[in-house]
Design a protein around this nucleic acid. Structure first.
Lengths: 252, 252
DNA sequence: CGTTGACTTGACCGTCTTCAAGTTTAGTGG
DNA sequence: CCACTAAACTTGAAGACGGTCAAGTCAACG
């Protein structure tokens, strides 16, 4: 019996990529699909709690999240942790430090994750062969920038209650469009209050009390190891968040 | 007498771009220079205090900062302001919202500024014609992302004193490599304490008291309408900031 | 059945905000 | 030249918001 091709051994060959036929992602041309198929160099499966990449280490790979989610964070030397953003299906990670390859942040999985692996130093090939894909990568980077801007506004200028309301609404919104949350069941975010605290720039204790306040208002409910979102609009209102309509986005 | 070409009427034709021969910027090939020269569509001169672009408005242009500096900020509906980053020579601005063209933030000049203007919807031409330049744009975007990550860490997890120390060190560092601060005179940042407060997520009053503390430690001095930086290393130490060595960067 | 991780709660305290008033400087028009 | 104004900085006092400490509950797991 001969070896199957590398691609057929994959759990997610590109033509069956779980992102391909989701409404919020744009389609590839046949050409692009073929190229990306060859550009992909492997698949990475990690468990909940695993470190996907690590601050300070150099990493020759880029990844696109296929399933599951995680968070991106930075540490101060004395251990204080700040979660800067979350990664969800369709997100391209590891672009930061394209030149050095040295990561400026770490990423940890919040659920089992599947990632699609690329070689960082083949990026230029993609830029030469498929300018529209290159354009998409830039678009993804600038989208990330927008999210970070919003988060900065939130941490810098919103009160604890507003901040938490914003965070929960933000996460549900992203989770929905990235396909993490299916159907019309109650949205549920499986993260600990410690994660929320480290995202909001608050202490664990105060985060807990803030969660409780939002629960009393009927905006959310805390159920073991996660947060059920009851009223997204209410949360957005509380956070004074005006959102722009969702658009079709590219992915790699 | 015939009209001169558009280019020769410019104050800064690309072959005399003030960024061209600065150590911290990479060189263009002749080819690239010629292309960029045609890609450039105009020059924008603004006074100190002018709004360069405005949140919510759609803007068909991209700009590269040639001289001067400014800040990028967002507002909450009730007027609370958060400065998310500063723009300095070599920075490409307006990339956010490439698709919609609708700005998610505003930019205001902190000094007279000169900007080099491009057409947003010609970007794809650049991506097709000069993949290495496209790559550079992505690099710039991911560099911005790194800065925002750092700022988030700072606002989320550092105390007021650490935060201010970080901010000042950060600004001096950038100002030096972007050519805003020349020679070896004492570095001087011409911004108000209100700007600092809105960057740090602090109130004006507390920012003032924090400035005073750093001044007492001999790390900086406040002189009318600006801040003289006396000891950058001391500031970095206080902020517990480990920086990565500077590299040659691209610019557009 | 002890251990561990996550959540909860109360008490106390410090950082930072708000309010208020005052100083200094530069700019303006009489 | 001088009063008038506005912007930026300064300072003190009071109080809110959020941090820290400490103790305790609960469920899951081996």
């Amino acid at each position: 019996m001969t070896h199957a091709t590398a691609q057929s051994e994959r759990k997610y060959p590109c033509d069956r990529c779980p992102l391909l036929h989701r409404d919020s992602f744009r389609r590839f041309s046949d050409d692009e699909l073929a190229f990306v198929s060859g550009f992909k160099k492997g698949e990475l499966f990690v468990d909940r709690g695993a470190t996907v990449m690590c601050e300070g280490a150099s990493n020759p790979h880029l990844y696109t999240v296929l399933t599951g989610w995680g968070f991106r964070y930075k540490l101060l030397p004395d251990g204080r942790r700040q979660i800067v953003n979350y990664v969800m299906p369709g997100d391209l990670i590891g672009l930061q430090g394209t030149l050095t390859g040295e990561m400026q942040h770490s990423i940890e999985a919040l659920s089992p994750m599947t990632l699609c692996m690329f070689e960082r130093n083949e990026l230029m090939t993609l830029y030469r062969a498929h300018p529209p894909l290159a354009y998409d990568i830039t678009w993804l980077a600038s989208r990330e920038e927008c999210m970070l801007d919003e988060n900065l506004l939130s941490i810098g200028r919103r009160s604890a209650v507003e901040r938490l309301a914003y965070l929960v609404a933000f996460l549900v919104g992203r989770a929905r469009t990235s396909g993490l949350l299916s159907g019309n069941a109650v949205s549920r975010l499986a993260l600990t209050q410690q994660h929320m605290a480290d995202t909001l720039g608050l202490s664990l204790v105060h985060t807990n009390k803030t969660v409780r306040k939002l629960a009393q208002r009927g905006l959310l409910r805390w159920t073991d190891g996660g947060c059920e979102v009851l009223d997204v609009e209410g949360l957005k209102g509380l956070a004074r968040w005006e959102d722009q309509e969702a658009r079709q986005r590219p992915f790699l």
